[in-house]
Design a binder for these strands. Sequence first.
DNA 1: TAGAAAACGTA
DNA 2: GTACGTTTTCTAG
Length: 984
Amino acid sequence: MPANDPHHDTVDAGDHVVLIDGSAYIFRAYHALPPLTRSSDKLPVGAVAGFCNMLWKLVRAQGFEPKPTHLAVVFDKSEQTFRKDIYPLYKAQRPELPEDLRPQFPLIREATRAFDLACVEQAGFEADDLIATYAEQAKAKGARVTVISSDKDLMQLVDDLVRMYDPMKDRAIGAEEVFEKFGVAPEKVVDVQSLAGDSVDNVPGVPGIGIKTAAQLLAEYGNLDTLLARAEEIKQTKRRENLIEFADQARLSRQLVTLKRDVPLDVPLDDIAVVEPEGKRLVAFLKAMEFTTLTRRVGEAYEIDIAAVEPDPGLKAGGEETALLTAGLDPETRQPAAPGDVDSTPDGEAALTPQALSAARIAHATATPVDRSRYETVTTPARLREWIARAIDLGIVAVDTETTGLDPMQAEIVGFSLATAPNEACYVPLAHKGGDEGLFSEGLLPDQIPLNEAVAALKPLLEDASVLKIGQNLKYDWLVFRRLGIEVAPYDDTMLISYVLDAGASPHGMDPLSMRWLGHTPIKYEEVCGKGKGQICFDRAAIDKASEYAAEDADVTLRLWQVLKPRLAAEGKTNVYETLERPLVAVLARMEARGIMIDRQMLSRLSGEFAQGMGRLEAEISEMAGETFNPGSPKQLGDILFGKMQIPGGRKTPTGAWSTGADVLEELAEQGHALPRRILDWRQLQKLKSTYADALPTYVHPETGRVHTSFALAATTTGRLSSSEPNLQNIPVRTEEGRRIRKAFIAARGHKLISADYSQIELRLLAEIADTPSLRQAFQDGLDIHAMTASEMFGVPIEGMPGEVRRRAKAINFGIIYGISAFGLANQLSIPREEAGAYIKRYFERFPGIRAYMDETRNFAREHGYVETLFGRRCHYPDINAKNPSIRAFNERAAINARLQGSAADIIRRAMARMDGALEKARLSARMLLQVHDELIFEVPDEEVAATIPVVREVMELAPFPAVALKVPLKVDARAAENWDEAH
DNA sequence: TAGAAAACGTA
DNA sequence: GTACGTTTTCTAG
C-alpha cells in the first residue's frame, strides 16, 4: 500500500502524523474568539466552532501540507498526574474555568468523533506526555510529525521530523522559532525551563534566573548538570548562591517539565489513522450545532443533501445531551464537565469569512460587560511576572501608560496597565506619590514595584516578536517606553484602525469608540484627578481609583481591537492600515524624539525688532484714528473704520460684526486709505512675534535643547498628518519678514538641513486620476503647468505671456483641486462672479476629462458617503446628501479635494515608511525630522549631503510603486543648507 | 474662566 | 473653492 494512502493503518516513513493538543486549543480559542452562542438556545459554542473549522481544514489539507495520514486529538484526562505526586504545587495556581467554557469540552470530544478522528486521553498523564509518546513512536518509524499547539512545554519535542504549528497565528514553529523564544536549541529547552521555572504552571526553577539568563548560562556550561556541578565558578554572587542553594529545586523542575515519551498507550499509534469522515454523521453534528456555513461546505464536499439530514437529536437545541450540558454535566459521564488544561493562546476563527468574523465580533462586543471589580492592582514583581507570562502565552496584550502629563517627551511614567482578555486586566503603579504636601517630604507610596525592575520585566514582553502589543494612540506610549529604553514591537493601534475604517464618519478617541462599539462609558479622567483649578496630577491620584481607570483603558483597548481589527479584512482595508498607518507610528515617534534645533538668540532678536515695529505702527495708527485703541481688536477696529471714519464698502461677518479680515483691509488700502495698510503691517508683526518668535523658544526641551513637535496621525479626514505643540507645518515662508523666522530653524553643528519637496504633486495626481492626456503630457515634458493651462484656455503663447494671465490660470488650477466654485474663484481673483463662471466653463470645455472626473467623484460620494484615494484610503462625508444646499456643496468640494489631497498624503506616507530603511541600507546617517504635507526635512552630516539627496529623491519619487504605477512622473526638488529657509 | 469667533500662518 | 493649529479677543456663565 502506498505510504501516502490515508486508508492504511501502519505508520511508515513518508506518513504525516498530526497531534492536536485539544485542551490547550479549547482554552486559546475561547479567549481569542467572540463568545459565540447557538442561536436557538444560547449554548456557548465559540471554541467548538473554531475547532470544527480547523479540523475541516486539516482533513481537507487546505493550506496544510502534506495531508495528514494519522491524526489524534489529545486531551488531559484529569488533574491528578505523576507530576502532582512529585510536586503537589504543580499547576496549583490555575484560575477557575469560566462557566461558558465548561460545556464546550464534551462538545469538542463529540466533534472529534463526528469527524471520525481519534480522541485520546489517559488517566494520570497530561496531553503533553501522550503527544510526546506518539511523536516518539512516529519518529522511530520515520514519519513526519506536526504538533498543533503553541504551548511552550511542547517545544522540547521539535527536531528534524517534528514541528509545531500554532493554529491561532497560522504559523509553523520550528527550531528557529524555539530558539527565538528560549535562546537555545529545542533539545535544551528542558534545561532552560528547569532553571527559569514557569509561573503559569507553578514550576519553581531557580530564583533570579529567567529565560535569558538560563540560555546564557547553558551556552557557557553546555547543560544543566554541568552547570549545577560547576556552579561555584559563577562570578555573580547572588546567582552563584542561588544556583547552589536551589540545585535540587532545578532538578525537580526538570522532572516536572520533561515530557514522558514512553507512556503505555491505550490507543496505539496505528489506530489513529485518518479515515474519510462519514459525511452524514458529521453533517448531523454540525446541523445540531447550527454551524450553517461549515454544514454547507461539508455537504458540498461529500455531495450530501444537507436538507435531508436530521440534526443529531441528542445534541440539537432541546436534546437530552444538550440539557445535560447546559446543566454543567458531561453527557457521557453525567459528571461535571471535565476541566482540562488551562494554559494556552489564541485564534480558531480562521475558517470564518472575514465578513462573518467581523459581524460576529461586533455582535458580541457587548456580551461581556465591563466588570471593574475583576481588575487587579499589581504590587509585587512576582505577580507582574505572572501577568507577563500570561501575555506571552497568549501572544497578545493591550498596554496603556499613565504619566504625569500630555507631552510624551517630558511626562514621567506613573504606572501602566495590561489587558489579556475582556475583564482580565491589571494596573501596575510605579510612581504614585502621597502623604503630606511638605516641600521635602514628598515620597513614593509603598507597595509599588521599583521602576527599573518593572522596566526590566516589561522589556522582554514589549519587544517580543511573537507578542502583539495593542494600544490606543500608541505613539504616545511608544515614546514613553522608548525613553525607558524599550522599543515596542510588534504593535497594533486601535485609533489608527478606526481611522482607516471611519475617517470623517466618527471620532477615534477611546471614549467615543468605547461608547460606539462596546456600549460602555469608561471612567472619565476628571473622576480620578478632578478638573479645573482643583485638578491633581495622576501621580497624586488615589491608587485604587487610578487602578480602575487605567486597567479599564487597557481592557477597553483590547475589546476595541477585537471588534475593529476584523473589520479591516472584512472591508478590504488591511493593506491601507499596514502600509500607510501602522508603520508611521514608530517612524513619527522617532522624528518627534529627534526634534529640530532652533536659534533662540535669533528669535529673541527678532521678537525685539517686531516689538519695535509694532510700537512705531501703533503710534501712527493712533495718530490716524485720532484716538488710542487696541489694533488687535477686530471689534474696536471695525468701529473706527466703518463707524468713526465712515469708510464705505464694509462687509459683515456671519455674526453681524464688521469684517476686518486681510482681504477687506487690502481692498481699502488699494483705495488709498492709509490706516488699513498700517493695521495689516501691525497684524503681520503681531502674528510673527506671538505665534513664532515668542512661542517657539518656550517649546525647547530642557534636556535635548531642541523643539519636539507632535504629529497627529488620525486628525484629518484626508489622510494628511497634522502637527501641534508647536505646529511646525505652518512656519512662515511667504514674506521676507516671515522667512526670518524660518532661518531660525537650523542644523546641528557639522550638519545641514535637507528639504525635499514634491513639485505640484496634487496637480500631477489630478492629471493622473482624471486621466487628462494633455496635462499628463505637459508634466512629462516638464512644462510650466500654469502657463500651459493659460495658453490652452486663452490661446496666448507661452512665450512672453503676461504675468496676470498666468496668475489667473494658476488660480483656476488650484481652484480645481479645491473643488472649484464660481463664487470662490471670483473671490480669489477679485473678479465678478459671472466672469469667474465663464473661466470655469472655458476650462471644462478645454479639459472635458476633468469635468467628468469631478462629476464622477461627486456622484460616487453621494451614493456611497465616501470617496477613495488612489491607494484605497476612504474619506467619509456623511453630510454629502444634506438638505441644506450650501452644506451639500461644501461636502462635494471637500470630497473632490480629498481624492487628490488624500492620494498625495498616501504617497508621502509610503515614502516615510520606507525612508529609514532606505537610508540605513545606503549606510547613511541622515535623520528625518519633519513632514510638511509635500515636504520632508532631514538633518544630515555635512559629508553625507551629496550621497543622501539622491536616495531621498528616489524613495519619494518611487513611493507609489509597486502598489500604483503612475503614468505621470513625480518630481522632487531637494536642497541642503544651514537653515530651513535656504534649504527650501 | 471656558469656549466661540476672528484672524492668519502653512500646504 | 481644500486641509489644518495657534493666538488673541470677545462673550456667556
